[in-house]
Amino acid sequence: MRPDDLPTVELAFPGPERDRGVAAILSGRKTALTGLLEIYEHDGETVPMTGQRFSVLDSEGRPVVTIELVDVRVVPMKEIDDDFARAEGRGYSNVAQWRAAHEEFFRSDGVSEYLGHTPVIDHNTVVVAERFRVVEPE
């Protein structure tokens, strides 16, 4: 399957945050993603499944790398552990740092504007925790 035929993943919003995430995937530091279940529901999208492949887009909307999901869990934030936090490839040394960064992002103006309200983020907030492997650079 060509990258153009795959569903796409866009990390955060276009700009420096997305660029850092894409670079972390390409370097091998990032092997996990976290999404807010409420965003999937808002979009009417189903939760991705293990084995699914995605084309990761850069800030210009160009396919950069293909990933394959190796594990997908729908869990409350309190179930994320240090190992998963480090796999996010953003330099988090523990789940507390992961949690602070994700709370900030999920409550950001961009997410609030997208959803039409500021989501409630606490230890019971449900996230989609995905682990992946790089299949091929584009």
Results as ranks from 00 to 15, higher is better:
Gly91His: 08
Asp58Arg: 11
Ile67Ala: 03
Val74Ser: 02
Val135Asp: 06
Phe106Lys: 00
Thr118Lys: 13
Val9His: 01
Arg107Ile: 02
Glu17Lys: 05
Gly51Thr: 15
Val75Trp: 00
Glu136Thr: 14
Thr8Gln: 04
Glu104Phe: 12
Gln97Val: 14
Thr46Arg: 06
Gly89Asp: 12
Ala129Gln: 02
Val64Lys: 10
Ala12Arg: 09
Glu88Trp: 04
Met77Ile: 15
Thr8Val: 15
Arg18His: 09
Pro119Phe: 08
Ile25Glu: 04
Val64Met: 13
Asp43Gln: 10
Gly28Val: 14
Gly35Phe: 00
Gly35Leu: 10
Gly61Lys: 07
Gly91Ser: 10
Tyr114Ala: 03
Thr66Cys: 13
Phe106Leu: 07
Phe54Pro: 12
Glu17Arg: 05
Glu104Val: 13
Leu69Pro: 00
Pro76Phe: 10
Asp5Lys: 12
Val65Met: 03
Ser93Phe: 07
Asp83Trp: 05
Ser112Leu: 14
Arg99Lys: 13
Thr8Cys: 09
Arg99Leu: 14
Met77Gln: 08
Ile80Asn: 00
Glu103Met: 04
Lys78Gln: 12
Arg99Asn: 10
Glu113Leu: 05
Asp81Ile: 15
Gly116Asn: 05
Glu10Trp: 02
Phe84Ala: 06
Gly91Met: 10
Val64Pro: 01
Glu38Ala: 15
Asp4Tyr: 02
Leu11Asp: 00
Val128Lys: 01
Asp122Ile: 14
Gly89Cys: 13
Val56Glu: 03
Leu26Ser: 02
Pro16Glu: 09
Glu60Ala: 15
Pro119Tyr: 06
Thr8Lys: 06
Phe84Arg: 00
Arg131Val: 00
Arg90Pro: 04
Phe132Val: 02
Ile39Asn: 01
Arg20Met: 14
Arg2Gln: 14
Pro16Leu: 14
Val120Ser: 11
Arg99Met: 13
Val56Met: 08
Pro119Gly: 11
Arg20Phe: 05
Gly89His: 06
Ser27Phe: 07
Glu17Val: 15
Glu136Lys: 14
Val120Ala: 10
Leu57Ile: 15
Glu88Ile: 14
Val134Gln: 05
Tyr92Arg: 04
Ile80Ala: 02
Arg53Gln: 15
Arg62Cys: 14
Val128Phe: 04
Gly15Asn: 07
Thr125Gly: 01
Leu69Met: 11
Thr31Ala: 10
Val74Trp: 04
Glu45Asn: 13
Ser59Asp: 09
Ala87Asn: 03
Phe132Gly: 00
Glu104Ile: 10
Tyr40Pro: 00
Pro16Asn: 09
Val70Gly: 02
Pro137Met: 11
Asp122Pro: 13
Asp4Gly: 08
Leu115Ala: 09
Ser93Cys: 03
Gly44Asn: 06
Tyr40Trp: 08
Ala23Pro: 08
Leu6Asn: 03
Val126Cys: 03
Val70Phe: 07
Val65His: 01
Pro3Glu: 08
Glu88His: 07
Ser59Tyr: 03
Trp98Ile: 07
Gly51Gln: 09
Val127Met: 03
Gly28Met: 09
Arg133Gly: 14
